Simulated scan of single mutants.
Amino acid sequence: MLSTAALRAHLLAAGLAGVVATTREESLRSYRLFASRDPRVLIGLDPERAWGVRDLVALMADRCGVSADPRNVSGHDVIDPERTLAALDAFAERLAEAARSGAAVLLGTGHPHRLLGFYAGLADALSAAGCGVLTPAQGRSVDITTRFGLRTYNLDYVQGVALVREPGAGRPGGATGVHTHSPLPVRLALAAAAEAGGPLPELVIGDHGWVCGAGQLGFEAMGLADTDDPAPFVGEAEGSVSVVVPLDDGVRSGYYRPLARYVLNRACLSR
């Protein structure tokens, strides 16, 4: 079993916490866009209150451990590994509850090249524990506005984890998909589940728009987020998102495997 000390060391060595690749400039730009309610940064969340840049800096300092000084405008962000570990423990606790009740779950990612393996491990363990791992709207098209204009993607599931891919980009269920922050894929999946008469997920696990989009619609949601993605943390602060784990979401995919093992061990779901 991976100890807390060993995982802390891994977080720092892999750049998942400690000094991370995300720059202060990137984060502050996201905070400014969020404060102006730019939908590209809200990623499906409709905040209950007005959040200024100073409010967001204070929130992210509290939830992630970044600098609380708004005058600090350059360099790399820092994530406190203790905050990451505490959030992983809360994540594992909720995962254990879902497993005990045999809850229906929906997993999805906008970071398939990095995070697919992490979520796939959770999907496999939850399925083995008797949870229904849902795959609604498989193969359906979703139009997403990108910096290159409007693009049509297909919703697909790989090892129980939803992602979007370009039409004709490999066989269904194979390879990985595209990077997106959009909440439209989770809205499509939830609408399809409702149209089919259920079941609806009791828990949504993912990142970006998957967490914020589901949480905004009233579904319990939890997942991972970087320091330049304030929306999930705002959702957590306002109560629409259950748990957000602060970490760098852009390191090598293999670096997330120890996190999955740790969470599954804590949730008593290891096999």
Rank of each mutant, 00 (worst) to 15 (best):
L115Q: 12
L115V: 04
L116V: 01
L116N: 04
G117M: 05
Y119M: 06
Y119F: 13
A120H: 03
A120Q: 10
A120N: 06
G121H: 07
G121P: 04
A123T: 03
A123C: 04
A123H: 03
A123R: 00
A125L: 09
A125I: 04
A125G: 03
L126Y: 03
L126G: 04
S127M: 00
S127C: 06
S127F: 03
A128V: 05
A129S: 10
G130S: 02
C131G: 04
C131M: 01
C131S: 02
G132R: 11
V133S: 08
L134I: 11
L134C: 11
T135M: 09
P136N: 02
P136M: 01
A137H: 08
A137F: 13
G139F: 10
G139T: 04
R140V: 07
R140L: 13
V142M: 05
I144F: 14
I144D: 12
I144A: 14
T145R: 08
T145Y: 08
T146M: 09
T146S: 02
F148Q: 12
F148D: 09
L150K: 15
L150F: 00
T152W: 13
T152F: 13
Y153I: 09
Y153T: 02
N154E: 15
L155H: 06
L155W: 03
L155G: 01
D156K: 07
D156E: 14
Y157K: 11
Y157M: 00
V158K: 11
V158C: 09
Q159H: 15
